[in-house]
Structures are given as C-alpha cells and as structure tokens.
C-alpha cells in the first residue's frame, strides 16, 4: 500500500505539472520548454527557505510562487517576441540557465551536493508527516488546478487564448491584446509549476539540480501529448499513464542482465505505438 501511496504522490505532482503546461501549450499554442525551470525554482525555494532559514512550508512555497511569477512575467516579455522554433529555443534557454544557476551557485543551492532534510507541511497544528496525509493534501491541489483549468477553458479568457492559438493575427485584429493574454497564462502556469516543485521537494526531502534539467521538460511534453492537448482530463491521464508504465514494466520478470534496457525498449515502443494509434493523444482536442 505504501508503494501505491508514494506513486500516488508522484502522480499528483506530475498531474499538477501537466495541467500547468497544457494551459500554455494546449490552450494557447505556446511551445514552452521552460517549465522544468519553474518546477526547479519552486522546489529550491522550499528547500532553501525551510532548511536554511527556518521558514515553514507554506511561506516557502509562496515565496517560490512569487519568484516564479516575477521570472515568468519578465521572461514572458522576451519570449513574446519569438515564434515557433525560436520560442522553443529561448524557453529551453531559460531551463538551461536556471539549471546552471542551481548547479553552480553553490553558496545558495549547495550545487550538485543537493539539499536534504526538507520538512513536511503543517496546517493548524496538523503535521502532514504520514504519506497518506501528504497524498491527500497534494490531491487537493490537483483538484484545484483541474478546476482552474476547466474554468479558464470555458471562460472568455480561454476563448481568447484559443483564438490566438489558432490565428493570432485575426485575434489581434478583433481587438484582443494577445501579448497581455500570453503573458498572463504563462505567468499563471509558471506559478502552478512552482507549487508542484514545492510539493516535490517536501515529498522527496532530498533534492539536487539533476531533477530539473531540460530533459524533464521533454518528459512533461510527453505527458500532455500522450494524454491529449488542451484537455484537463488528458493532462491527468497522461501523467498517470507515463508514471504507471515504467512501474508496470518492472513486474514483467525480465532477465536481470538486460531488464533495465528491455524496459526502456518496451517503453519507447509503447510511446511510438501510442502516437501511431492516436496522434492527437488519448483525449486531445487540438493539434499544434
């Protein structure tokens, strides 16, 4: 049971990330590779403030969210100048830059040695030290983010986003200030990714920069592509599927000499098959 609960916690964290990324990529059509950076900032905010300055979980998370918001707002302004491939490269650049800072700014982040002993949150005296309670707390946030996504999707804000995704020129000519909308959704999404990062740091209690590299961003992409772009349900399903798949492969009883590589092979094959059978993702409503 403990094993499933732990998987459940990871699911919640990845679901939060998938929902946040899908808002930017699915709803708005912005191919951002920057989310690993925001995830990392959220995690390190909690790690540094809790272990080195005695802050509590919620205030640390808030600090991380605010930092992400400011960063996203600033970066968003630069990003809005770019389209397509360039948007992707510049956003990837943010991931690389943040990773570099986390890795090398040793006086702040302890570099590759990582930060350990990160505590768990408390609310009104109740300490979320058991994994089951932590899971429940994380799940509450998943529900919140899911609701937020659906709310935006169905609102006029969401319609404007989808408009600028489909045809930005037209949307601008209709009077919508698309740069403001892009900036808003990017900032919001970054803050959500920060929350996921904070939960991750608290859950695993021991973080290092290697969890926040560009490759992680590609994994987030895979989640929402498999699950379905522009769909809240798709985000959540994608997260669950890509978490469960490698776990299920363990139980196939492959020979120990080659098990790890065969598992990779099967995982890769399943990805290809999924794309071949359902190119729009399991519950996708939109193609980039």
């Amino acid at each position: 049971m403990e094993y499933l609960i732990n998987l459940g916690i990871l699911f919640c964290i990845y679901a939060m990330l998938a929902l946040s990324l899908n808002m930017v990529v699915g709803l708005s059509g912005l191919v951002s590779l920057a989310h690993a950076a925001f995830y990392g900032i959220g995690a390190y905010a909690v790690a540094i403030l809790m272990t080195m300055h005695g802050f509590g979980f919620w205030s640390s998370m808030l600090a991380g969210v605010v930092l992400n918001g400011i960063t996203a707002f600033a970066v968003g302004k630069i990003l809005s100048k770019f389209k397509g491939d360039y948007y992707a490269i510049v956003s990837a650049g943010l991931s690389v830059i943040v990773f570099s800072v986390l890795l090398n700014f040793k006086s702040l982040t302890k570099g590759p040695l990582g930060i350990y002993g990160i505590g768990k949150p408390s609310v009104a005296g109740f300490h979320f030290s058991s994994s089951l309670s932590f899971l429940a707390l994380a799940f509450v946030f998943v529900v919140l983010f899911y609701a937020l996504f659906v709310l935006i999707d169905k609102s006029s804000f969401g319609r404007a986003l989808k408009g600028l995704r489909e045809d930005e020129v037209l949307t601008v000519s209709l009077g919508y200030k698309t740069t403001k909308y892009k900036s808003l959704i990017f900032t919001l999404s970054a803050m959500m990714a920060g929350v996921a990062g904070s939960f991750f740091a608290s859950y695993i209690a021991f973080i290092d920069p290697t969890s926040f590299q560009l490759a992680e961003g590609i994994f987030f992409f895979t989640m929402i592509t498999v699950g379905g772009l522009s769909s809240a349900f798709g985000s959540v399903v994608g997260a669950a599927l890509l978490l469960i798949l490698p776990e299920a492969l363990r139980f196939l009883g492959l020979p120990y000499e080659t098990a790890a590589q065969l598992q990779q092979l099967i995982y890769g094959a399943l990805l290809v098959m999924m794309m071949a059978f359902r190119p729009q993702g399991l519950f996708g409503k939109f193609k980039v």
């Binding site: 992409f221 990779q264 890769g268 794309m275």
Partner: peptide, 20 residues
C-alpha cells in the same frame, strides 16, 4: 495529421528504443 509535438514524442520513443 499529427502535430509537431506528436512527431517529437514518436521520435523520443524511437530514440529510446535505439539507445537501449
């Protein structure tokens, strides 16, 4: 009708197979 992201994920799957 696959989008660029779908192609990316498919290529990721193949890359994983080849590397393994």
């Amino acid at each position: 009708g696959a989008s660029s992201m779908v192609l990316l994920v498919a290529s990721l799957g193949l890359y994983t197979i080849f590397e393994a």
